[in-house]
Design a protein around this nucleic acid. Structure first.
Lengths: 337, 337
DNA sequence: CTGAAAGCGCTTACAG
DNA sequence: CTGAAAGCGCTTACAG
């Protein structure tokens, strides 16, 4: 009673061979409905649980998809993880999620373990660091793997990369602020040297060049508190600035808070645009304009292109950029918008 | 070259039997160092990857620990997930994390799938709903399972429950506010009817009864925006209130923001205490007093008690409450604190 | 429509 | 210190 019942136990109970039980498990049309019903009843009676590991061993495909995430504490990534998993689940695949915590060594260990556990495919939102041996391992093991949101391996032929078109988003934001009458626009927040910071900033830089204005850039952590501090710094050191494109909404919300406390009317005296369009950004006071990255649909698309690769051999394009869309709200326009 | 090399390939390459290879894999001291080295070299050469599923099939223990989380979008739970996983990883166990998204049916499907995949043990921060059949399944499959943070099954003998001593935390917060000179204290935020709301409120209610004051309770979503709205409502409808214990820090931060915008000085005119002690709470303006729940250590303890159960048969106590500690900052005292 | 046999890649006693 | 054999719980052709 301690060991788990197997198909042999079920077969004995139902008075058939184990082959028949196996066929019933796969809903084979070969089995007479009556026999199938009897077998199913026997499964109930003995408390049978399918042993997927054993099945996989023979058929050598686990239906397990791995997801390695660089920071499970960041809502942007967890939203991705949640929608990715949901999409796979709906198509009958189980997802194992693991968090590397921005640690390349941890990431290597996780991936190693996932390969051992026989994942059929892998999506990685990678930690920065030396990852060549990690990706070599993946190549050897022949596990279809995509890089999302961050590109750390340049071998996009083997490890296709997909992300958002942040460059375009930054351009949209800059043009919108200029059109709304902003005179001096700063780019605020984001860690220096990170690719994603460069991308989000790039569209802003082009627009500043186009209108012949010197850009003003203040780097910082992508957090609410950093945003508040940077706002103070701008009011002190750059009083001429009357608008900002923020690395993300958290920074923008922190800035908004600090500006309003100092009596600045956000949307009139100072215009603000963020990135990510978090749920709460629509509800801030004033509501925050933001470059919306539909991370939910991104997660779903990543899931289906990975499955197409796995099941139909359709290799995803080496690089894919999902388009983004600026959502304008009161923080960048008149208060009543 | 397409199929993964097995120990037989390694054995052939190294000129030994597959048993020897297996022993090398387990670092058996029986194998001569020289032979082991030769075998290891052969593994490198053929690109061998351990097949854990096959190993598990024979030894019937996967070393896979499942974690089912009710809401991967909530930082409190993701912090738990991250520390739980780290702790297990450090002890050589792989964790598979899955998100039920507060959906009991999804949760049932996830747990079913995890059992099939042969998890050795399970931790569940459960979704509310009808879970009897889900837990029956677990009982039948004989998988050691703990409930954390939310108790949905009353069979704590089979499914031990552990959480924080929120009741005590609420009491600490209330006594502190009374001692600081607050005259009228409200309890703000948290969904009505949820056990965790009741727990966090309970200590407050006792203290109000003790000092003979009618409690004032305003329910709401556990979010920043809800906090801001509830603050407005309090200023309008309960002008006599000069302090609040909030369901969590998000609510408190939202309240703080709304209060300050209306010119109230938080910490002087209005005293505020939250729950959870988020990282950013120490850095808000003013810094937020909060009941600190050390979720990191909670995750680690959960991991090790689960492993003790799995490996040594030490069943955790039916109910465990980790103690919490009020951290007082300027939001509940003088501004200069 | 159902059964007998081989095999997936390991581990585990048991010999030697 | 190393090898030959059986077995973990399934699936997969192949018979019948």
């Amino acid at each position: 009673m301690d060991r788990r019942p197997t198909i042999l136990d079920v077969a004995a109970r139902a008075g058939v061979s184990k082959s028949t039980v196996s066929l019933v498990l796969k809903n084979s049309p070969q089995i007479k409905a009556e026999t199938a019903a009897r077998v199913r009843r026997a499964m109930q009676e003995v408390g049978y649980v399918y042993n997927r590991a054993a099945a996989n061993l023979r058929s050598s495909s686990t239906g397990l998809i791995g997801l390695v995430i660089n920071d499970l504490r960041n809502p942007f990534f967890t939203e991705f993880a949640a929608s990715f998993q949901m999409a796979l689940f709906a198509r009958g695949y189980a997802t194992v999620i693991s968090n590397s915590g921005e640690d390349a060594a941890m990431q290597a260990a996780i991936i190693h373990s996932m390969i051992e556990h026989g994942v059929s495919a892998l999506a990685i939102s990678p930690a920065y660091g030396d990852v060549t041996s990690t990706f070599d391992q993946l190549a050897r093991a022949n596990v279809p793997t995509v890089q999302v949101l961050r590109q750390v391996s340049s071998r996009t032929d083997k490890f296709p990369f997909s992300s958002f078109d942040f460059v375009d988003g930054g351009g949209q934001a800059a043009r919108h602020l200029i059109a709304s009458g902003a005179r001096r626009i700063a780019f605020v927040g984001g860690l220096e040297g990170r690719q994603i910071t460069a991308e989000r900033m790039s569209g802003y830089l082009s627009e500043m060049q186009r209108i012949g204005t010197e850009p003003i850039v203040l780097y910082g952590q992508p957090s609410r508190n950093a945003g508040a501090e940077l706002a103070q710094q701008i009011m002190r050191e750059h009083p001429q600035v009357d608008a900002a494109i923020c690395f993300n909404d958290l920074v923008a919300l922190g800035m908004m808070n600090a500006l309003e406390r100092e009596g600045q009317r956000v949307g009139e005296d100072f215009r603000l645009v963020g990135f990510d369009d978090l749920e709460e950004s629509a509800q801030s006071l004033p509501p925050l304009s933001s470059v919306s990255c539909d991370i939910t649909s991104f997660g779903e698309k990543t899931a289906s292109s990975l499955l197409d690769w796995l099941t139909k051999g359709v290799v995803p394009p080496a690089t894919h950029r999902q388009s983004v869309r600026l959502v304008t709200r009161a923080s960048s326009g008149g208060r009543g918008v």
